[in-house]
Design a protein around this nucleic acid. Structure first.
Length: 466
RNA sequence: UGGGAAUUAGCUUAGUGGUAGAGCGCCUGGCUGUUAACCAGGAGGUCCUCGGUUCGAGCCCGAGAUUCCCAGCCA
């Protein structure tokens, strides 16, 4: 007999009165000595489990059904019928129940049916998808990823698979993880005593990428509208609730575009995916609003229906200077804003996502386009309440002479970036894009407090156990 | 990487230098179309590790490990 997902059953297929078969795992078992057991069975297809009623007349009731505990896997057939109890509309009256896998020792089963701390769940990352919260996060994460691809596909963007291994170490986005096949116990040396990377796999030093942007720009210069969506790596010793050593980033790049076009794209994309998650994962979002963050749903609704605030860096600094708030780090034009400043703008002053534009050139990357004022570059950050920077983007410097000038000023070696400079030599166009921290997006949408709880197996300093 | 906090039963935790406590979970029994079920009973402890002070250390001191929070770096 064909297996139905619990999601499709709760949506009405098959209909009440028909035979159904489900496969899943026991969440809880409650017995009535009057001769019934109630099983909550889930299969991950939606937030809710389905209630299965098992009468004592079923085969192996005493020896098996009464021994079922949280986590056991089962294969059940029965009749779908309206529930006689409160709390669910339909339930399955079981006619056959097969225990596929038992739980060895119910007392020490780590996912016992009770509340667990997030720290505890992280230590059991392989079992935490069995919990309500991790399951809901997984479905929302999936929904967001799918919506992002859909958003770009509908707008004729090309999804480009940029490389994860790179020789460029000068993108200025942080410390890199080395990639090497050299024998660490016996490193080849050159005549100066330095490690001889010409003996390494690629014949030179290589690293895991910190961004796909430079590569995706190459495709942008032919395909017009492109994006990459993949893992990126930063070897920073960051110990915060919003940093990962391995995280996923969405990086669109558009040709014949300026900074304002980039900001428009980012805003449109965020609204699109917020709308998608509210429509497609209403069950999980209701759970987050109830148990994790009261504002989880209302926050997204209010953002969908309003424009993001756009403010020039120079004006943002003035707001901070004149607000009367005591900051740990003093505010003046030219500073790289600290968390407290970004939080003040997003959480207290504007109380919604803020797009800060046109930053001082000295605190931004070499590839960002210089503005005519000689002081700023066409860069933007989107600051989200509770998260901080969720998007960072810019219009890129499309003029080769200006790009070279910035590379010289910032001591960026050119030998690995001749190909990037070529893009300005042959049919250059104004273009730009942004990077969206996908895991930060999931954190923001769900209202979860820690980014380590929105990615299946978080990589942070001293943590690669799974 | 800096500053702070934490580590006691399967989990969450209380614990005042002198016999190790609770709630939940688990097991057993009772009760009930149950749904955070309820009632009664029971089992369950390397008090993070090493060293020190003390007649005596879960508690005081030192070192280490790990985790969390804040900050920095960023997405």
């Amino acid at each position: 007999m064909q297996v139905s997902s619990i999601s499709s059953i709760l949506k009405g297929t098959p209909e009440s009165g028909q035979k159904v078969r489900v496969q899943g795992w026991i969440r809880t078992r409650r017995d009535s000595k009057a001769g019934l057991s109630f099983l909550a069975v889930h299969d991950g297809s939606c937030f809710d489990p389905i209630q299965v009623v098992v009468e004592s007349s079923i085969e192996h009731y005493e020896s098996q059904v009464l021994k079922l505990t949280t986590g056991c896997s089962v294969d059940i057939e029965g009749e779908l019928k309206p529930s006689e109890g409160k709390g669910q509309s339909v339930e399955i009256l079981a006619s056959r129940l097969e225990v596929v896998g038992w739980v060895d020792d119910p007392e020490t089963y780590p996912m016992s049916p009770k509340r667990h701390t997030f720290e505890y769940l992280r230590e059991h990352a392989h079992l935490r998808p069995r919990t309500n919260v991790s399951g809901a996060v997984a479905r929302v994460r999936n929904c967001l990823a799918h919506a992002i691809h859909r958003f770009f596909y509908e707008r004729e963007f090309l999804y480009v698979h940029t490389p994860l291994i790179t020789a460029s170490d000068c993108e200025g986005a942080g410390e890199l993880f080395r990639v090497s096949t050299l024998d660490m116990q016996n490193l080849p040396r050159n005549d100066k005593g330095a490690v001889d990377y010409s003996k390494d796999f690629f014949g030179e030093e290589t690293f895991l990428t910190v961004s796909g942007q430079l590569n995706v720009e190459s495709y942008c210069q032919s395909m017009s509208r492109v994006y990459t969506f993949g893992p990126t790596f930063r070897a920073e010793n960051s110990n915060t609730s919003r940093h990962l050593a391995e995280f996923w980033m969405v990086e669109p790049e558009i040709a014949f575009a300026d900074l304002s076009d980039c900001a428009d794209l980012a805003e449109e994309m965020l609204k699109y995916v917020f709308k998608a998650v509210l429509e497609e994962r209403a069950d999980d979002m209701a759970f987050f609003a109830q148990r994790v963050d009261k504002e989880a749903i209302s926050r997204l609704e209010s953002i969908i229906n309003a424009s993001f605030v756009r403010v020039d860096y120079t004006d943002a600094i003035r707001i901070l200077e004149e607000c009367g708030e005591k900051f740990e780090f003093p505010v003046s034009w030219g500073i790289d804003m600290a968390s407290e400043h970004e939080r003040y703008l997003a959480e207290k002053h504007f109380k919604k996502p803020v797009i800060v534009m046109n930053y001082p050139k000295d605190i931004k990357a070499f590839y960002m386009r210089q503005n005519d004022d000689g002081k700023t570059v066409a860069a933007m950050d989107i600051l989200a309440p509770g998260i901080g920077e969720i998007v960072g983007g810019s219009q890129r410097e499309e003029r080769l002479d200006r790009l070279d000038q910035r590379m010289d000023e910032m001591d960026i070696p050119k030998e690995h970036l001749d190909w990037y400079r070529d893009l300005r030599r042959y049919g250059t166009v104004p273009h730009g894009g942004f990077g969206l921290g996908f895991d930060r997006l999931v954190t923001y949408v769900t209202g979860m407090a820690n980014i380590r709880d929105v990615i299946p197996f978080p990589r942070t300093p001293k943590n690669v156990a799974f």
